[in-house]
């Protein structure tokens, strides 16, 4: 098309239309490719591993029975991790040598060793000194402590990301350091780290599969158990994978919805006047 023969507004409309056309063509291609990938995987499975509807019908509900436990373990662990991370971040930022040393050791040690080792330590190590814990407690304890160490650094960075002028304005108004932290710095730091907590929760959903090693009957344990017994591990692991996958998609969607709502909430509150 010859741009010179168009008026300015016609040109703008034509450009916008062409942009739209290009975008919709792109997203069509994207969807086609995604569908093709899924179809290919589906066909591969159907052709090579004669899918038995009866086996699927019995295995899938059994494995699905672990979903609630997986979610409960992940939820409790992320809660424990959040509490530990708040304490850890305060310790890492503390001028007290004692608090700082304890928090620094915690972060260093729990980030510096494998999560699987930590899970086993709770389950296999502690009984040797007479501490026998329920597998559920082992899983939540190990996951919570480990994620707490990572989140400590996250929270510390979140607190430090709040401009120093905020603390100064608060104490200049006569607030004590503690009040300034609680009422001015912490709420802003929380906003900063909230998306990251969501990401960690989704990662936790998947890492909670390690709880299967301490006999917790969550998704992966069930998949392995029934798969070994029937010599159909490939099928059961795929089923478990699909469940994890759906859960992470669902929670990611929930997370972005929450974030959008929070942003919208800010705007609405602001407009209310």
């Amino acid at each position: 098309m010859n741009a010179g023969s168009l008026s300015q507004s016609e040109l703008a409309a034509a450009v916008a239309q062409s942009d739209r056309r290009r975008e919709s063509a792109w997203s069509l291609r994207f969807r086609i490719i995604t569908t093709l990938i899924l179809l290919a995987i589906g066909t591969f499975i159907a052709v090579y591993f004669n899918v038995e509807a009866t086996f699927l019908a019995s295995a899938a509900p059994f494995i699905a029975g672990g979903i609630s436990l997986t979610i409960v373990v992940a939820l409790l662990s992320i809660m424990l991790a959040t509490i530990l991370a708040v304490l850890g971040a305060l310790g890492r930022l503390s001028r007290s040598a004692t608090a700082n040393a304890i928090a620094s050791f915690y972060v260093s040690f729990f980030r510096g060793t494998p999560l699987l080792l930590q899970v086993l330590f709770w389950y296999l190590g502690l009984p040797q000194v007479g501490i026998v814990l329920d597998p559920f407690v082992c899983a939540v304890g190990a996951l919570g402590m480990n994620y707490g160490a990572y989140m400590t650094e996250l929270f510390r960075a979140g607190i430090q990301a709040v401009p120093v002028g905020q603390r100064e304005a608060a104490v200049a108004l006569g607030m004590s350091e503690q009040t300034a932290f609680r009422r001015v710095v912490a709420p802003q730091a929380f906003r900063i780290v909230l998306p990251a907590i969501g990401n960690d929760f989704i990662a936790m959903l998947k890492d909670s599969a390690l709880a299967s090693t301490v006999t917790l009957h969550e998704i992966l344990w069930r998949a392995q158990n029934i798969g070994r017994r029937e010599f159909k591990s490939l099928q059961t692991l795929l089923i478990a994978a699909v469940f994890y996958w759906i859960m992470t998609i669902a929670f990611s969607a929930l997370q972005s919805w929450l974030e959008r709502r929070m942003a919208a909430g800010d705007r609405n509150q602001a407009v209310k006047a």
Binding site: Q166, A169, L173, G174, M175, A270
Partner: peptide, 22 residues
């Protein structure tokens, strides 16, 4: 120092309003 600060209001170059409050 807190007693002192309560008697001295401060206005900053960068405003330093609390963004999470109206």
């Amino acid at each position: 120092i807190r007693e002192l600060r309560m008697r001295a209001g401060m206005v900053f170059q960068e405003f330093n309003l609390f963004p999470h409050l109206s």
